[in-house]
């Protein structure tokens, strides 16, 4: 049990380092949106997600409605449901309901990727260890970015505003290069986002993201449906 926990923590170290620098950018962004260091850190501790938080602080800054906030989080983070489903197929027997409810907090893109790639069944201790490393990096980076972002020269903190977007590009470009369908989804969503930004300016930014991504994915799914034979289920 203890070994599983420390192994999870160790495997989580690269995630921690990555999160540390990316969340630094989020901290800066949150402060610019009007949050203080505590609020920014609390957001990172309770959400543990990059795109959702970035969109969330924009809604806070714009004074959007709570419904808009809930819908934006739902649309941006719905991918976690699919990851959670995938992981639920390879859980160890020790994963009782309370453990599932607790460990679900740590399902992020990166933790999912490492857990899904693990050959052994997932234990709660392993996921807790990995989540601890990742959360430590994510919250510490946010706090540093929010606090020291104000001390940094403007030229440096301005340049760090692009960090999160750089990471987003690094997530979408490699698969778009390999699969025409993904490229199509990316281009449609980007075109629609441009239209919302410059022509349909009455649509708020949060709703624009929802509309663009739902229509983009719906259209792509209609034109490029996934092969009918779903990837074989992991044996329990």
């Amino acid at each position: 049990m203890k070994k599983e926990f420390t192994q999870g923590m160790r495997h989580g170290i690269p995630i921690m380092l990555g999160y540390l620098s990316v969340s630094f950018g989020f901290g800066i962004k949150a402060v610019r949106a009007g949050l203080n260091t505590w609020e920014a850190s609390l957001t990172s501790l309770t959400n543990l997600t990059s795109a959702g938080q970035a969109a969330g602080v924009e809604i806070i800054a714009a004074g959007g409605t709570l419904l808009e906030m809930a819908l934006v989080q739902l649309i941006i983070n719905i991918r976690y449901s699919l990851m959670a489903l995938t992981l639920s197929q390879k859980l160890d027997r020790s994963f009782t309901l309370p453990h599932r409810m607790l460990a679900a907090y740590g399902i992020t893109d990166e933790i999912f990727a490492l857990c899904a790639a693990r050959v052994k069944p997932l234990t709660p201790a392993y996921m807790y260890g990995m989540t601890l490393s990742a959360t430590f990096g994510w919250v510490l980076g946010t706090a540093l970015g929010a606090a020291a972002g104000q001390l940094l020269p403007a030229s440096l903190s301005n340049a760090m505003g692009i960090l999160l977007y750089g990471m987003f590009l690094a997530i979408i470009i490699p698969p778009a290069r390999k699969e025409r369908s993904v490229l199509f989804a990316v281009i449609i969503a980007a075109l629609m986002s441009l239209i919302c930004k410059y022509l349909l300016t009455f649509i708020s930014e949060g709703f624009a993201v929802i509309i663009c991504s739902v229509l983009g994915a719906a259209l792509t799914a209609a034109i490029f449906p996934l092969p009918d034979d779903a990837p074989a289920k992991e044996a329990r």
Binding site: A51, L82, A176, V182, A185, A221
Partner: peptide, 24 residues
């Protein structure tokens, strides 16, 4: 299929054109 494509569409819509306003 929809669930497979949604993350890419979301990140694309969030990045473009916002990335061009992300620095000063």
């Amino acid at each position: 299929s929809f669930l497979h494509y949604i993350p890419y569409a979301v990140l694309s819509a969030m990045t473009i054109p916002a990335i061009f306003y992300s620095t000063d």
